[in-house]
Design a binder for these strands. Structure first.
Lengths: 132, 132
DNA sequence: TACGTGTATTATGTTAACTAATACACTCAG
DNA sequence: CTGAGTGTATTAGTTAACATAATACACGTA
């Protein structure tokens, strides 16, 4: 069994779904720094997907700084990299924009939207205070 | 000149960028109900893009309920369709999740995230109170 | 009648995504 | 040292999405 929940669906690339699942698991605390990450072949077998596809996800996760590769040994969840306030804003801006646009079309008022955001924060059990 | 701001970039399908631009314009009030929408051929010429690609965007915008087609005459911005609370939540859930996950990775605390959301709401000049 | 609408059709080229089958350098337990 | 398990690279082939191109048609209207 994989150490992170994932269920492949159609519509999005498989390697992207893997990346997103790992990001979700790390953000929620399901996966922690130093944790052993399953081998490419193990994930491949579990998801019944080509090893090359999993490899593509691992490569992206590594470049995202979420995974550390120990040559000949395996992968581990990396320590979080520090980012500047500018980088934070640039990463969040497009997501915020899409959310606000969708809320407008759904006629969801700002107060409700803020409450939904608070609820989602709790849902993912994010410990935001433990970081800077 | 097109009645909505748009700048084509690489990385995302052209027809999707058009859809997103129109959604943004409608959400921000730049385009309003009953407004005339440029013809497929006009947009095609303005963006120097194939008419079929624009047509694909129009088809999607129509199915999304943002555009009304008056046969032989043209397209107009449609009146907003009412959606249930359930539909609202289902539309916002994936966007909220992606936002919260990204915020966690960027080590942005909840209070800051909420403030960024308020700022983005004002930035898009959304009139959330005029709708139910 | 002409023109401008949206729409449909057929064809072609490009690119991304996925699978498949190998192969190689590395680390570590035996 | 040997062999198994790591990540990684390579080559090949298939499929689907995207975009372009060139027409064609039914519709409303000046």
């Amino acid at each position: 069994m994989l150490p992170f929940p994932i269920e492949l669906t159609a519509g999005a690339p498989i390697y992207e779904q893997i990346v997103e699942a790992v990001r979700r698991a790390v953000a929620s605390g399901r996966l922690k720094e130093g944790d052993r990450f399953p081998s490419v072949r193990a994930i491949s077998a579990e998801l019944r997907v080509n090893p090359n596809t999993v490899q593509k996800a691992v490569t992206e996760l590594t470049s995202l700084g979420l995974l550390e590769v120990h040559p000949g040994q395996g992968c581990y969840i990396a320590t979080r990299s520090v980012s500047t306030v500018r980088q934070q804003r640039e990463a969040l801006a497009p997501l915020l924009e899409r959310l606000v646009i969708e809320a407008a079309h759904q006629a969801v008022d700002e107060a409700t939207l803020l409450e939904l955001l608070r609820a989602k924060c709790r849902e993912l059990k994010i410990n935001l205070d433990s970081n800077s």
